[in-house]
């Protein structure tokens, strides 16, 4: 289990975490988890952003005279301290003891809880049931939800022994969920085919 960040904002359906490493957010669509008491809360990374630590001060371009991008950071080591990388995650389920639930937890995560990236085994276990898909399908928010679903499924597929079989099963589930929304279905399917 790999600790990647810390929650800085949390609600029942979503949380925002700051990464410990600048420019190292978990991949878009990957599964992360955090802990609230006895409950482990699972989230799907729905976006990440790197910004200035002070909202009013925007970074300025510094690389005109440098040959390599890395040289900018070498020349001004304080820059890394002035920037931050945050990521958002949509809550898609939780675990109480041994029981996995693919619906929202009773309480939101606490601020300053650690966030971990799930290993493939855990991803495979979590994606054995497709019930979390309906949360994603109905999510509103920044960016394209369909992009998120596709990324999440691509990610989950890699954790399974037979990614293609997994994608077909999950594709069929999506086809049912998006029964009346043919164009959305087509968009997602085109993005998850191998």
């Amino acid at each position: 289990m790999f600790k990647i960040g810390e929650i800085i904002e949390a609600s029942t359906g979503e949380f925002v975490a700051q990464c410990y490493e600048l420019h190292q957010p978990p991949p878009f669509g990957s599964l992360v988890k955090t802990r609230e008491g006895e409950v482990e809360i699972y989230g799907v990374v729905s976006g990440a952003a790197t910004t200035s630590i002070e909202p009013g001060r925007r970074p300025i371009a510094r690389g005109r005279d440098e040959a390599e991008e890395e040289d900018i950071y070498r020349a001004s080591p304080q820059l890394a301290k002035l920037l931050r990388t945050d990521f958002n995650a949509l809550v898609v389920g939780h675990r109480e003891g041994e029981r996995l639930h693919h619906y929202l937890p009773p309480r939101p995560a606490r601020v300053h809880s650690f966030v971990y990236l799930c290993d493939p085994e855990e991803v495979a276990r979590f994606s054995q049931s497709f019930d979390f898909l309906s949360i994603l399908v109905n999510a509103r928010g920044q960016g394209s939800v369909d992009e998120l679903i596709a990324a999440c499924l691509r990610h989950a597929a890699q954790a399974h022994q037979d990614p293609r079989t997994f994608l077909i099963k999950v594709g069929k589930e999506l086809a049912v969920l998006l029964g009346g929304e043919t164009s959305r279905l087509n968009t997602i399917l085109r993005r998850i085919r191998e």
């Binding site: 069929k172 164009s183 087509n186 085919r193």
Partner: peptide
């Protein structure tokens, strides 16, 4: 509407997904 805008079934993956569902 699926009849009017058929999915891209030339792709075996999509064809397999929509068969039996959509």
């Amino acid at each position: 509407r699926l009849m009017v805008t058929p999915p891209d079934v030339s792709d075996p993956f999509i064809a397999e997904v929509v068969a039996g569902t959509s």
